[in-house]
Structures are given as C-alpha cells and as structure tokens.
Design a protein around this nucleic acid. Structure first.
Lengths: 243, 243
DNA sequence: CCAAAAGTGTTTTAATTACACCCATGC
DNA sequence: GCATGGGTGTAATTAAAACACTTTTGG
C-alpha cells in the first residue's frame, strides 16, 4: 500500500504588459524551481495545501507570495492527478487568476520570479506546460462570453482600453463601433460621466465596471459563494467556479 | 499542525428513465450513507482515492461499484475543498458521468443504491446537494453547445429519440424540423441507412453518432488525452476536461 | 485646418425561430 | 382512408458583421 496522495494548489497568473516595442501582450507569472525534480526549470507558482486553508485561499496566497498582488479574478481551472505526473503522487488543484495591468507593472520580479509573454512560454516543469496551455484556452474562451476581461483593468477605463484587452487576449482586431454596441447591450459597464482629458483627439468617456453584475454569469457555485459570503475577500470580484 | 488533507473522488451519475406515467426524466444515482456523519442520508457515490489510480479511473470505478455500469461520458466537474465541508478535511474531486438509458434500466438498485429524478433529489449529505445542482447545471449548459446528449443513447437511434434527450435535459419542447437541421448542420450524427420498422407511421431513419468527432470539441486537455492515449478505456467516448 | 480617435448610422449577411405542408407507414 | 410522427420548404425575426460617416479635441 502506497502513501496517501499529497495535495498542492497552483495558480496560473495572467496580466497584460507591454513588450519592448510598446505593444501590450498577455503575460504569465512563473517561478524557477530551486530543487529537484526539474531544478532550474520554470514552473507555475504553487505550494502544498495547508490543512487550514480553503483551496481558493491557497490559490490567492500562491499568487501573493510570488507577485505581492491580489487577484482581480480567481477561478478554479482543473484538478490534475495523473499518477505519473510527478515522482511523488501529487494532486494539483490549479486556479487561474487575473491581475491588473497597472499593478502588475510594479510587481516584484527577480532571477526566480518573472513574467513571460503567453506566446513565448518556455518548457515548464512537470505537466505545467499543458496546464498553462489549458488556462490560456479557458481565458480566451471565457473572454468571449463573459466580462472577465475587466479583471485586467483599473477601476475606471475607456472603451478603447477595454477593447484593447479583448484584442490582445483574442489575438484579433475588433471593430470599434460594433464593440461599443456589444458592450452597451451586454450591460458590461457603466459610464462615469467623466471624460479622459489631454488626448490629441476627442476625449473619451470613462467607464467603470457594473457592480450590480458579476464578471461571469452565476453558476450554482458562484451564486452560493456570493449569497452566503463566507469570509471571502471582497476585492476579488468573483469567486466563480468553472464553467 | 493538522494532518494532511485526504482526497476522495465522487461521481454524479446521470441517466434517463421513465417515471410511473411513462414520461422519460433525468435521474441521478445516489447511495445511502451507512455510517456517521450523515448516517442514513443519501449521498453521491465515491471513495477515497487509491494512490495507484488516476482521478478519472477512480471516478469510473465509483460509477461501476454503485451501478455496475461503464460511463458513456465522463468529465471532471470541480474540486471541492472548503475546510468546513466535512468533519475531517476532505478534498473531493468530483466527476460527472452519463450512462445509457437502456443499460441503466437494468442497473442494480436496492435499499442503499437508488435512482432519483433530478427534480426530486432529497437533501444530501455534506455539500452534495450543491454539487449535484452544479453538475446538473453543467449538464444542461453543455447539452446546448456540445454533443454530450448522445451519451444517453444506444449505438443507433432515431432523431426523435435524440430530440427527446434534449427536451428532457433542457426541460422544453423543441421544433422537430429545426432540430433536424441543427443536428445535420452540426454534423453530430451519421445516418445508418437503416430504418426503424414497426411504427404506426412513416418509419424513421436510424442514426449513429459520428465517430470522427468527439462528444465535445477538444480543449487542450482532451486533445492530449486522445492523442497520447495513456491506457484510457476506449469505451468512454471522451475523456474531456471541463470547459 | 489637420490628424486621430470617439462615437453614430446604415447596409449586408447569416443564423434562429416560427410554422405550413407533404410523405410514408400501420391499422 | 385516416391518424401519426417523419421529413421538407419557406417566410419572418433577430443577431452579427462590415463599413461609411460625423464629432470633438490638441496641435
């Protein structure tokens, strides 16, 4: 009889950041492994699950430990448990998170913690390459039918900024006019009445996200979480389950 | 310091079965708890994770133990790990499964194992009521954009049977003509060329599911699973991840 | 006035829905 | 023939995409 499987929680952390040419791109936070196995390789941030922590708390804490940031959005991705995915039997419960582009710019980064552009992720330890790819897929599909994109933006923003988030995540240009109508009819945001001044063109309206609506439409899990809020941080806009 | 969390795997098993009036309805398999806590209450079938089993194997085995059946479709639902969801700290990795209506009719059933109609599930042990509700939500949303409905049907079937599955799961009537066109354009099934005889009306065509397509469109996880098939049962039509 | 992005309007296209109607069989 | 569900056709509605055009600012 072998030992009981160990449980770990990891988080795929996404943000937006400009590359050297000034183009905004999707980026993922990775940590370098400092011990065997896969010593020296990059991996997803994570830690063994502390028995006193909820899964979501553990995921947020992995995020905080590596970046010093709080998630704007946090959702469970999948539980990985193939017997041979690691030398020891480890069940990894993986979350994915969005952090604000503004905050991430100031996030810590060093030899062992770094941001990688999503289209240039190096080979990762364990099955983490597959996990990262899956998280990316989930982000992209979810952007199309939910409001998670707001998780990258600060409190107020212009529609052009919001559209840029969609364009970067989806990897394609969007028609400004149609985008505006889509956003308005989906009731995603509220106008603040303020305008952004100082532009060399017509000053755009500033919007904020609609606080009466969650970033995703509520599935039964999210509904329970927001109804009987059991000590969850209220700076995470949704605690949503998968969907 | 408390002990390491234990890992269990449970499965929400769906099938279709007729009620006393002969109406086909969605049903879930439950087992009665024979020990504390929640002794006597109904619960989802499951078991502690054996260190030698993959998660999916464990889910299929929970299914087999309770019903004696093999899943036609099996997908991970969610990992539940709230600290207070059980007296001991237990991380439950939950799968959901579809079994054929024809086979389920012959499945074992006794004082401690029974099928309950999905709209009449009794209060369950632990947080299993919430889990069952979430699985139901996932099944319903997934039926709308994938081909999982085929998981309820035998090898060959008529379009009317397939439509009935959709109607029962979604809880609404569908237009036969439009349904036919939807199925044809989505390339869900293949005509067998055979016809069902003995009806008091025009004999319908028999179809089989399209084996060149999976029951769900492949996300990165499913794609890997089917490409490098690592000992998965080939009678499960997809090993799909969540989506 | 010009450049540039904000913002509005209109046309085209495609997908969805609603519903009328014919077809083929057992009785 | 007639009742019944199988199967086809078509018009109406709605949503998505394409794209022209007007507005408002800084320089």
């Amino acid at each position: 009889m072998s030992e009981a499987p160990a449980v770990a929680v990891s988080t795929v952390i996404f943000t937006l950041r400009p590359d050297d040419d000034g183009n905004v791109r999707l980026a993922v936070a990775l940590v370098r492994r400092i011990r065997a196995p896969y010593e020296g390789l990059w991996a997803l941030p994570g830690a063994p699950l502390d028995s006193n922590d909820d899964l979501q708390t553990a995921a947020a804490s992995a995020l905080y430990t590596t970046t010093g940031l709080e998630p704007r959005y946090l959702e469970q991705l999948y539980a990985f448990g193939q017997v041979d995915r690691s030398p020891d039997r480890i069940i990894s419960i993986v979350y994915w998170a969005l952090v604000g582009a503004d905050e991430a710019a100031a996030a810590r980064e060093n030899d062992n913690v770094a941001w990688f552009f999503a289209d240039a992720i190096p080979p990762l330890a364990f099955d983490h390459s597959l996990i990262a790819e899956y998280a990316l897929w989930r982000l992209r599909t979810k952007v199309e039918y939910s409001r998670v994109a707001l998780g990258f933006l600060p409190e107020t923003f212009t529609l052009a900024q919001l559209r840029e988030v969609y364009e970067v995540v989806l990897g394609k240009q969007l028609d400004p006019g149609n985008f505006r109508r889509m956003v308005e009819s989906a009731d995603i945001v509220q106008p603040t009445g303020l305008r952004l001044a100082g532009t060399p063109h017509r000053p755009p309206q500033l919007y904020r996200y609609n606080p009466t609506r969650d970033l995703t439409d509520p599935d039964p899990l999210t509904r329970v979480a927001s109804a009987s809020d059991t000590g969850n941080r209220d700076d995470i806009r949704t605690l949503g389950a998968a969907s």
